[in-house]
Every structure is written in C-alpha cells, then in structure tokens.
Design a protein around this nucleic acid. Sequence first.
DNA 1: ATGTTTATTGTAATGATAACAAATCTTTAA
DNA 2: TTAAAGATTTGTTATCATTACAATAAACAT
Lengths: 143, 143
Amino acid sequence: MADITKQKIVEQLKEAGVSPSEQRIAVFSFLHHNHIHPTADTIYQSLSPDYPTLSKTTVYNTLKLFVAKRLIQVVAIEDGELRFDVNTDFHAHFKCRECLEVIDLFDIPEPQCPTETQLIAESTQLNFYGICDQCKGKLEEQS
Amino acid sequence: MADITKQKIVEQLKEAGVSPSEQRIAVFSFLHHNHIHPTADTIYQSLSPDYPTLSKTTVYNTLKLFVAKRLIQVVAIEDGELRFDVNTDFHAHFKCRECLEVIDLFDIPEPQCPTETQLIAESTQLNFYGICDQCKGKLEEQS
DNA sequence: ATGTTTATTGTAATGATAACAAATCTTTAA
DNA sequence: TTAAAGATTTGTTATCATTACAATAAACAT
C-alpha cells in the first residue's frame, strides 16, 4: 500500500473506466502515496511545482470523477473542506482540534443501519473529534 | 420534547449563561419545535416573516454561541451546509440522497474510540448515506 | 441620567466549489 | 496521413455559505 508503481496506478484507472491522463495519474498517485486525507487545494498545491500548467478545475473534476467511479472516498469530517481518501473500505476517522490532522482508525467495526428503519445505507462515515496525545502534551506543558 | 414552553426556553438559555434576547429565544424555539436539522439559512428564512428585522449574521452568531455553550450540536453530514440539532445526546443520522432529508437514528450505540490510540474523543458523529424507503419507491415507479 | 457593556444589524470580504466556454490533446475513420 | 469528432484541460467568472468588521441600538450599572 505504501508504495505503488505507476503501472499499477494506470491499471487501476483503466479498470475503473478512466482514461489515464497525466493529470489523473498525478492526482491518483498523490493520494496513493500520501494518506493524509488531503483537500482539493492541498493536492493542487502539492502537484503544482511538478505540473506547472495544472489547473485547480482539473483537480476538482478529477476528484469528482474518481468518486463517481468509486476509486476514492469523500471524507466529510468538517464543513467547508472536502477531503479524499484512496482507501474506500470502511474505517473511522479522528480529527484533532489542535493540529487539525485526520487520523485513520481501522479497528472499529462498521456500524449498521437498523433494518427496521427501511433505510438503505450505501455508505457510512464515523468521525471522532477531539485532541490527540501529542497536542494534549503540548497544551499541558504551556499551562 | 415536542412542545416546550417559552418559559422553559428562557430558563435553559439562562442556565447556560446566555441572556435571552428575542432573537435568541426565536432561534432556540425554532430548533426545539422543528427537529429537521436545519441549516442557518433555513432558520433565517423560517423566522424572517415573524422577525422582519432579523439579520442573517445574528442567526450565525447565535448558533455559534449555542454550540459554544453546548445548547445545541453541529451535524456535519454534508460539506457546504452546517446543520444544527437541539438534541446534544449522541445519535446517528441518515441522509437520503433523493429527498435530502436527515433522519435521526436513536437506537445505535455510540461507537467508542479505542483506548490504545491515545486519542481523546470529545464528540462522535455517525452518518449514513443512502436512500429512504419513500424515495426508493418513487424511483422504482418511474422506471 | 449617563457612561459602559452587550447584542444586533448591514455590508463587504473570504474561500471553497461549480459553471462555462475556449483551447488543447486523443482517437477514429476516411 | 489527415481531418473531423470527442474527450480533457484550462482560465475565468459566478455562486454560495460563512465570517469580519464597523456602526447602530439596546440593556445594564453607576
């Protein structure tokens, strides 16, 4: 997971019916190599140096396409910033209110929508909000 | 819960250390009587006829204050629209992708953040996305 | 009453995303 | 090979929710 070849990236895109343009490869690669749940802007800022002609609109279009093709997942953990995750399997997230980082939590079972409700859940998001150990330490130091 | 007197509203505000102005009473009342997880705009639009001088900024300020005083809860279920809930106890939400309504699910236990992670969760949001029974029926009719 | 704090208001600024149309690249078929 | 058609990218502009800010108004305390 940590390292994935460009070949694999291209393969995955093709399998999903997405023609592998330079830009799309770049965005998908970035997501594969940086499991930081980046926003569209973070992706754009990070790729810009290597792809000077890249446009922000392309990043938005590409991410929307990837989501539609189920190549990636939206993480709606905070209003006003859509984040993206290459791991489309269910897992929970924790957002630290100090460092603002989003941490993966893989060991929590997926909660199920009660069947009596007649609601058909297609996806599930479980988000925790709080403070991480590091930041808690720093805050206690200060006071 | 369905019906709450103005007196109770005023009491609750005072208890939380919020001086009960007309506008604050109106917003808190609206939330108490309309468990629809409204956005700031919905609240503003709904109250405007009765409070013609009400400003949108006041609605935003008031909601922010209520959240800070833990009188209400933010429901971050979709990017670009903050929703608000007078029920501050944990419960899950279901958003239908057709009618866009947000439905409460009270019977799901609150998932716990594993203690090994050293993360201290202060709040938890569990959101399901899918289609409700009514909308599913309508869609099937059409095809 | 008068000065001080608090709340409300309207306008303007911000920032993320989407719409749109023009430009470029790719593919297809003659 | 080349020209048309289709897909992709780009830059600009528009939109929409939210916030910042400064001025007004109301409530409170001396």
